[in-house]
Design a protein around this nucleic acid. Sequence first.
DNA 1: ATTTGTGCAAATCGTTTGCATCTGA
DNA 2: TCAGATGCAAACGATTTGCACAAAT
Lengths: 152, 152
Amino acid sequence: MTTILADCKTKMTNLNLKAIDEQLRDAGLKPTRQRIAIADILFRDGHKHVSAEDLHEEVKKSNIHVSLATVYNTLHQFTTAGLLQEVSVDGAKTYFDTNTHEHQHFFLEDTNEVMDLEGISIDKDDIANVPDNMEIVRIDVVVRLREKSSKA
Amino acid sequence: MTTILADCKTKMTNLNLKAIDEQLRDAGLKPTRQRIAIADILFRDGHKHVSAEDLHEEVKKSNIHVSLATVYNTLHQFTTAGLLQEVSVDGAKTYFDTNTHEHQHFFLEDTNEVMDLEGISIDKDDIANVPDNMEIVRIDVVVRLREKSSKA
DNA sequence: ATTTGTGCAAATCGTTTGCATCTGA
DNA sequence: TCAGATGCAAACGATTTGCACAAAT
């Protein structure tokens, strides 16, 4: 009964590979080499914010080849499965957040970094003038930061 | 003393063309045919949210030819000059807002529309954990809306 | 006349897609 | 076996850029 799991164990740094495996199955996703590698990187440390490109770079460092297209696919599958959340902070790139709880973000304009910001929250009931055939999906708050000295 | 202003007056719907002219000059921008046409569309009615593509379509309807590249250039110049504000609501497109005061946005996920939302505001002093070499540039709040029935 | 802006088309960037091939159960 | 996943390269949409030409003062 050799599964891909056993095959991956040597390369993985995550202690609960089993959990990843189950999480993927629960999401209806076959736990493939690539998906396990990606999940391992995403979920082994604390919360992360990655772009597809970022993640692709990180995966390259492991011994498992994953194409950029697969990284994109996987990020979207994980998002649909509720394992990730998309963050819209700045036009160009899409960021994915491993923290799927209600929380907000700092965005560092100098470095294009995204950071979690817990603490503030806006009550949906405080929002006036919501058209009545509409419902609030989510309230996103982005606090844009800049280094104190820099002007541009 | 025939300036381009006189030349444009027949085509413009905006009553205070003079003001536009001055606004552009103040911003260090030559009041060209194209920039005046764009400014007229942007500022003649109430507050607007446009993408470059949107605006390009609108300008086409006037009798003044403006290339898409110039629309982009102009939007950025206006933004730098403080006449517009960029809005980051959803990955793909960048929206520009003629309302440069502090206010927040609704984003209609079904139609990709941006709407102003006045009323809520977050006090900068309420934000904890701002790294102390950083300052808050802006706090963006986006309330995402969806039609009540639709699931996707 | 000089400086600045504009138009076009090609280039770029992030992301998506089509399809042949491969993999995991 | 066989559905489902992957890789590649080409397609894509939004935005930018380079450069010759045009326009405003």
